[in-house]
Write a protein that binds this DNA or RNA. Structure first.
Lengths: 230, 230
DNA sequence: CGGCATCCATTTTGATACTG
DNA sequence: CAGTATCAAAATGGATGCCG
């Protein structure tokens, strides 16, 4: 109950007082895709202790990042979801995620978990909403055997684990290596396509639309600054 | 030496494997202002244990965020500084810091440390380099009794603790409450000025230049997105 | 002295068992 | 299913000591 703090009146230190504990930001990441139940989170975060998960959820709730909501009568269960503040935190994480993609994400190590939703969560927030306006389609991603899909409904983009219920208009298949090469900026999307590292399935028109969306990433690349050591 | 990891092939998880441990990001923050010695860091990070600081520095060095450099002969000491990768991490932290400024930074609590360099580090990276081109001046900030200064030398902006050695062209005095109100977007700079919450000293011409700089913040405010819970 | 390594009392964490 | 209770292992925070 001691709620350890850095005792610094600094925006970064205060942020870390809230989400700096182990697992906290990964819980937020899981919730970026939408509301999840306790057991969903437990299943997604391999290695977290049940008491740690319960504790983090409570403290994130107290701090206003997460909200616990009881589901309507039929389901006697509860879900956790991000508040508006938590959703904004998701935006603030994007540059950190891209930094990790460029510098911390080498090859996949032995035994490392991977889920196709993770990279899609970046797409969801990086796609220019204007480019998605008027679009209505489902894109299925098959990445190293893990499947997830992006649903675009007139500007609103959502991410879902697993295959879509209705067959997707567009299906994309690639391996993680290709994805990281593109996401980190080491390889251009066009080059990866030309090299046959990405398989895209669907009616040409739908594929066109999908490509336009993914091409319209806003501010994912870091702003270049003049100085800085080395 | 067990180097605990989340074992997830995810850019966020990998990032946290590197800088997710307690104190790690605050060490990076301290180094954003330039090279520091071990004892400087120890002094700035109240509450950190000596072994934790040494351990973090070593692991940040191994991961390529920080570099240890021996100073030339006169000083028989060593300093730690950010690598290019660490400097990029600084950029990636800005949105997180702004999130904290908006949502996690209420009133200053009892016993909380505060140093004027902290907010200036944000200014340093948020000021549009183009706006700073050709400018050559020193701005002294006196915030709640803590003093630091921004040195602008033709587009290159540096932050230093304490008062400048040569008298500053412009001197700004305000309290943390005002600073947070402005930084979090709750109060416009112009309104705070009009309300007399900020005292600015200096030749009118120099003040004009300084105001233009601080007015030219690039991308500090979050991009508004359409959806999101609540 | 600056730059740590060592030792030890507390916390936090991870894993498992247990309960409404 | 959604947690709480329990307990061993790891991480932290302090203090102290060592060494060039």
């Amino acid at each position: 109950v001691s709620t350890r703090t850095y005792r610094q009146y600094c925006a970064l230190a205060r942020t870390l007082d809230i989400v700096g504990d182990r697992w906290a930001l990964l819980i937020v990441r899981e919730l970026l895709g939408g509301p999840k139940r306790y057991s969903d989170l437990l299943g997604a975060l391999d290695g977290i202790g049940t008491s740690v998960l319960a504790g983090r959820l409570r403290s994130l709730e107290v701090d206003g990042v997460v909200r616990r909501r009881r589901l309507p009568p039929p389901a006697a269960s509860a879900v956790y979801e991000l508040t508006a503040m938590g959703d904004e935190l998701g935006d603030a994480l994007l540059p950190l995620i891209m930094w990790g993609a460029r510098h911390a994400l080498g090859a996949r190590r032995d035994g490392e978990a991977f889920r196709a939703e993770w990279p899609l969560l970046v797409l969801q927030r990086a796609i220019d909403p204007a480019a998605a306006a008027g679009v209505h389609q489902t894109i299925r991603f098959d990445i190293d055997g893990s499947v997830a899909h992006l649903r675009v409904v007139d500007g609103h983009i959502s991410v879902h684990a697993g295959p879509p219920e209705e067959p997707a208009e567009v299906a994309v298949t690639l391996d993680v290596g290709t994805l990281v090469d593109i996401g980190s900026g080491r390889v251009a999307l066009a080059d990866a396509l030309a090299a046959g590292r990405i398989a895209i399935d669907g009616r040409p028109e739908a594929v066109q639309t999908a490509m336009a969306l993914v091409g319209a990433l806003s501010g994912t690349r870091r702003a270049s600054r003049p100085s800085g050591p080395d």
